[in-house]
Every structure is written in C-alpha cells, then in structure tokens.
Design a protein around this nucleic acid. Structure first.
Length: 446
RNA sequence: GGCGGCAUAGCCAAACGGUAAGGCGGCGGUCUGCAAAACCGCUAUUUAUCGGUUCGACUCCGGUUGCCGCCUCCA
C-alpha cells in the first residue's frame, strides 16, 4: 500500500491506480532556456524516488518527462546568444540528460518535446475553440477561464481573488485578464508553425496537456512537478484538458517544495542558481542524492555550501559500513520492511535514512547482526537509486601499492618509523591514504 | 492586497494524540610508535510565543510574531 499527499485534495491518500498494477506518471520537465540547476534536480530526484518506490511495490511504471523547447524566453535568449532556438535548447537538454544519467536517475519511457507535438497541440486548441472554451483574437488564441467552473481547484484560488491581484498585467486582447494564451501569433523574425490561426507557436501550458494525454491517455494517475508550477501552469493544464475531454485529467498531483539559496527560491530568473553539472564536479552523485533525501520533498530545502559536504561525509559513513560488513545474501527482513514502510508512506526518505543510521549504530554496537544489516542497508539504498557498485580496480597498480604498504609494515615492525612515515607521506602526496588498524594496514584513494 | 505553507538542539532534520529518531559539527574516550581513519559515549526536561481542548499535545483549535511560496517566466 502506497499513500502520499495529493495536492488536489490537500490530504494524504491511499493510491489507487486506474489500471491494477500499473501507474502512469507525467513529470513536468524543464523549459530549456538555461542550465539545469540544483532546484530542477530536486524535482527529478523526487520523481525518481517516487518511481522507484512504485516499481519496488510491483507496479509497472510508465513515466513521461517532457522538455518544453519553445517559449518566449527561449526565443529571447537564443537571440542574445545569436543561436538558432533549437540549437540553443538542445545544449540544455543534453546537459540535463548527462546529469540525470550521472545521478543514476532511471530514464523515463519517453522525453517528448513541445516542438515535436505541434499537430497534437493544434488539434487540442481546435477542440477547445469548437467547445467554446477558447477564442481567436488577432493571431492569438486564448482560453476563456470563466467558462471552466472548476478553475482554481488545484491551487485553491478563486477567480475573484485572482482578479483583484494587482500583479496581473493587462493584455488588451484578452477578454478577461486571467485568460491565457493557447496559441501565439508569430511576430516578425520569430520561429513559427502554420496553423488554422496563421503562423505562430504554442503558448505555455498547452504542450503539457497535449503530450501527457498523447502518451498516457486522457486520464492518468499522477502528475508531478515543483510547487511553483501549481499556479498557473498546472491549474491551466487542468482547465484545458478537462474542458477538452470532459474527463478528469490526473487523479493525483505531487509537488515538491523549492530549493532555496540565501532564503530565496533558486531560479533561473533570479540568476542565483548553481548548475547541477558544476556541483557534480565537487561532490559525488551519491552524496548529492543523499543531500536531497535528507529533507522530505514537501519541505523547503535551504542550500548552503556546508550541507553538501555534510551529506558527503554522511554518505561515506554508510559506504564504509557497507563495504566492511556486507557478506553473503542474508537480509534482516524486519529492518528491510521497516525501511520500506516509511518509503511507502509519502516517500519519507529522511525517516528512512534516520532508521538506517540507527541500525548501523546498533550493528556497530553488536546489538544487531552486522552482515545482514549491511546487506539490508545496501539493498534499500540501491532500491532508492544509490549506485554502490565497486569501483573498478587496476590490478597491477593495486598490487604495487599493496607491496609498498607491506614494506612499510615491515619497517614499522622493525621500528624504522622514520622511513615508514616517509612512505606514508609520499603515498599521501599521490592521494593514497594509509589506514592503520589492529587488523592490518589498508589504503584507499582519497 | 488575496491564497497557501512553515517555525523542533550550534547547523541540518524525523516524529504529527501516548511522553523528543537520525545526520553534520563539537567535546570526551578506545585503538595507534606517532598521526590519520574507524568505532564508542556525551551534546533539547523540551518543540517561536500566548491561550484553549484532552487523562495526556511537538502533534488538534484560536490569537500573536517571524520566515517562505504562488498570484509574472519558473522544478
């Protein structure tokens, strides 16, 4: 049984799939107008965790994650760089996928792109016009928000409240300031596609409706993304999709909270972001994943420089415990079930990690059996996306180092500490760390 | 101005009606030729604040203060 918080109801609910044993998930992907940053990665790690928990529970997961590769800002920024908007967006798509693979994120069933679904988008807009939910004005097509009686059901907003909000800019083409563009006529020099309304491009929101329904059906199980998308993006997706089909769009909505930096949301527009691919040069993918998992996805996560290092230290502790104690294949089933139960309950990764560390301490104290604990911890970590494969070793250089270490041990035995320490220092310069202990000397690459 | 969320030790962070997990850091210790690493122990009489409900509240209700998100492109 999996339960989690559904934004639509505002409550934790027990998940019931549309089709037994299957779950369809649409993850709102990036608008590729800038580099993928730590905030984006939080959303996709959250989605990856959710997907992995479902898979572990025996579900067949069909996950779709889009790239929105056409919008006003992409056009604007690609011009600034003097690049074709396609080439411009492509670099960020590549950067995202590279980082996702490094992060051991399971790849979605498909990564659809807005520009490859223009026909589906046009069909959807036409359907909305036919039904009277959309109107054409001077090259643009707008959605008539007041016609959709459930408008605001996801975000908890009321049309009257929104209207009084001082921040809505007046666009004279709109019949109501809350109406939003489904299709935008192209201005001189902008990219365009032919449509019944002339040359233009899709508005923001419509691409997600078109792509999710194409691959997952008119009603699907879960729609995920960041809280910043709840309004207007997801609200508008619901309005468009449900107006067009007369059916519920997504049964469950999962939103991750924002990553903050210095008390503000990390975002492209505030240009206070740290690119994921840069961070991955500093810390390992496992450490970064642990960093995210330490905080529940529904809580804001405040970034500071120390916290990544903390996560890294913390992960090393687990790693050491595992590499020292894993043996055989026996599991501690009670521990395993306890850890997984917390993941099935709103994907509570911090609680799971806490229990894991407590178990490690118990094992070190002899209260709990070491090898089954280590095997269990390792198994759970792998289920939730950590990559614990042994590093490939270079046999010859390993043997050389082993030989040098053996010579040093001999010198220590003969109390020639001066030379033994010299060897330790020299190896240290090569980033090889000597670990003396009762059970003999070990070494590792720092 | 409207809507929503959050406030737990030096820092990060669980628990959400049954008497405060865990991590990082710090301090003390075991081990060691020394050091490092590792491991162990200690580190919140108390959950922003005031009041209420209850046998019992970090957990529920109301007020106050502070912070954040959305209402404009955003994961």
């Amino acid at each position: 049984m999996i339960k989690f918080f559904n934004t639509l109801s505002g409550k934790k609910e027990i998940f019931k799939p549309i089709k037994e044993g299957n779950v369809s998930i649409y993850v709102c992907g990036m608008t590729v107008q800038n580099r993928p940053h730590l905030g984006h990665m939080r959303a996709y790690i959250t989605a990856d965790l959710i997907r992995r928990v479902f898979e572990h529970n025996g579900y067949t997961v069909k996950m779709i994650q889009n790239f929105t590769d056409i919008d006003d800002k992409i056009i604007e920024r690609s011009r600034e760089f003097g690049m074709d908007y396609r080439v411009f967006g492509e670099q960020y798509i590549k950067e995202y996928i590279d980082s996702a693979i490094k992060m051991n994120i399971l790849q979605p069933y498909y990564y659809p792109r807005a520009t490859q679904h223009i026909n589906e988008i046009i069909d959807l807009v036409e359907k909305l016009i036919e039904k009277g939910y959309a109107y054409f004005v001077d090259g643009d097509v707008y959605y008539r928000t007041e016609m959709f009686k459930d408008y605001g059901k996801l975000s908890g907003k009321k049309i009257e409240d929104l209207r009084s909000g001082a921040r809505i800019k007046i666009n004279p083409k709109k019949k109501n300031p809350l109406d939003f563009a489904l299709w935008k006529g192209a201005k001189e020099g902008e990219p365009y596609w032919y449509s019944p309304w002339g040359k233009g491009r899709p508005g923001w929101h419509i691409e997600c409706s078109a792509m999710s329904m194409k691959y997952l059906g008119e009603t699907f199980d879960i729609h995920a993304g960041g809280t910043d998308l709840i309004f207007p993006h997801h609200e508008n997706e619901i309005a468009q999709s449900e107006a067009a089909t007369g059916k519920t769009f997504a049964n469950y909505w999962i939103h991750n909270e924002m990553l903050r930096i210095k008390g503000e949301k990390m975002s492209k527009s505030l240009s206070n972001f740290l690119a994921v691919s840069d961070i991955l040069k500093e810390v390992s993918p496992n450490a970064l994943r642990l960093y995210y998992y330490r905080t529940h996805f529904r809580s804001p996560l405040e970034y500071d420089e120390n916290s990544l290092q903390e996560a890294s230290n913390s992960f090393e502790r687990i790693e050491r415990f595992i590499s020292k104690n894993t043996s055989g294949s026996g599991l501690d089933n009670e521990l395993f079930d306890g850890l997984m139960r917390n993941l099935n309950d709103n994907f509570n990764s911090p609680k799971t990690l806490g229990l894991m560390f407590a178990a490690i301490k118990d094992a070190n104290n002899g209260i709990r059996e070491k090898s089954t604990t280590a095997n269990t911890v390792k198994k759970v970590l792998e289920i939730i996306g950590f990559d614990l494969k042994e590093e490939k070793k270079n046999e010859i250089s390993d043997k050389i180092i082993d030989g040098i270490v053996a010579i040093r041990d001999r010198m220590r035995a003969e109390k020639q500490f001066q030379y033994a320490d010299m060897i330790r220092d020299e190896l240290n310069k090569l980033n090889i760390e000597i670990l003396d202990s009762k059970d003999g000397t070990k070494w590792k690459i720092k």
